[in-house]
């Protein structure tokens, strides 16, 4: 189709120049130029100054905390995400539609609201944190565990919504074949279904992970932001630097975050292109 059009030269549908121009102009003004400013501001720093800021202990710890907690949360979300998607696609039960709808709550709920609520619920006097503290002496709010819980909350819809459509479209003939040939259901699941879901799962994982690394509103309350206990996240450090008007430090840290985001975004896009190629060929 595309080739045939190229042969004839020119495009049949009108409006390419106009829509393409507007897209590029808005994208540049609103997104790319402001981000480029961060890049240029950070180039004003000499390499040694830059390194000095990045290697400050609290900055290093913040990166370790953000990346580590986001990774753990994304792994947990992948497991629960597969399960939720599976239950929602394959089983029928009462209130299924409500459950399906509620999955997207974290997309709609303002992050600050999620943040203060989770922080209160999991504090030593909260609805969930209270019993846990009284019975087991566990503290959740203001620890890394709390941080991971907030990131699970934020990330779960990414994984479920990435897997669900693929699972719905999954051609059941392989599954049936495996089942008829005598594979156990567990074997069928791990050898037949999981490989089919892998690209979608990686996309969901990548999105949840990327979102988790940069998350601000939902984690700053529950994390407690304690420097000694290493519960400060990178976004918090950047905001702190902004409040102290230390713009150089803020841009240097932001630059590293941007690089991480770009790598993750690239990774997600490569998976998605491969996935669409595969499905188009079938």
């Amino acid at each position: 189709m595309a080739k045939a059009r190229k042969f004839r030269g020119g495009r049949v549908i009108p409006g390419f120049g106009l829509t393409f121009g507007i897209t590029i102009a808005m994208l540049s003004i609103l997104i790319l130029i402001p981000l480029a400013s961060v890049l240029f501001q950070s180039f004003r720093l000499s390499p040694s100054e830059f390194w000095g800021i990045i290697s400050m202990p609290n900055v290093k710890h913040a990166f370790a905390t953000s990346i580590g907690c986001a990774f753990i949360a994304a792994v947990i979300n992948s497991i629960f995400g597969i399960m939720l998607a599976w239950v929602l696609v394959r089983y029928e039960f009462p209130c299924k539609r409500i459950m399906d709808g509620v999955i997207e709550l974290p997309f709609c709920l303002p992050t600050a609201v999620a943040g203060i609520t989770l922080s209160k619920m999991y504090s030593t006097k909260g609805e969930i944190g209270g019993p846990l503290f009284d019975w087991f002496g566990l503290r959740i709010s203001y620890t890394h565990v709390g941080l991971v819980i907030a990131l699970i909350f934020i990330g779960i819809p990414f994984v479920v919504r990435a897997i669900q459509p693929v699972l719905e479209k999954l051609d059941s003939q392989y599954e049936e074949a495996a089942y008829i040939l005598g594979a156990s259901r567990r074997k069928t699941f791990f050898k037949v279904i999981i490989p089919e879901l892998r690209p979608a799962l990686l996309t969901g994982f990548g999105l949840a992970f990327a979102r988790g690394i940069g998350e601000y509103g939902s984690v700053i309350y529950i994390s407690g932001n304690n420097e000694k206990e290493h519960t400060q996240v990178v976004s918090y450090i950047i905001m702190q630097k902004l409040n102290y008007l230390e713009y150089e430090s803020a841009t240097a840290i932001a630059l590293i975050m941007l690089i991480i985001s770009f790598i993750l975004l690239l990774f997600i896009n490569i998976i998605q292109i491969r996935q669409s190629r595969r499905t188009n060929n079938i």
Binding site: T23, I24, L27, I31, L32, I33, P34, L35, S37, V38, Q41, L207, A210, R211, I213, G214, E215, Y216, G217, V234, S235, I238, M239, L242, Y247, A250, T251, A254, M257, L258, S261, L264, L265, L266, I268, N269
Partner: peptide, 24 residues
Amino acid sequence: FIATLIDIPFSISPVIAGLAYIMT
């Protein structure tokens, strides 16, 4: 590539968005 650029705000920290406008 353009589709990827449009998706940038999805994966970067909102704090960086604020910082970007301050820097601009």
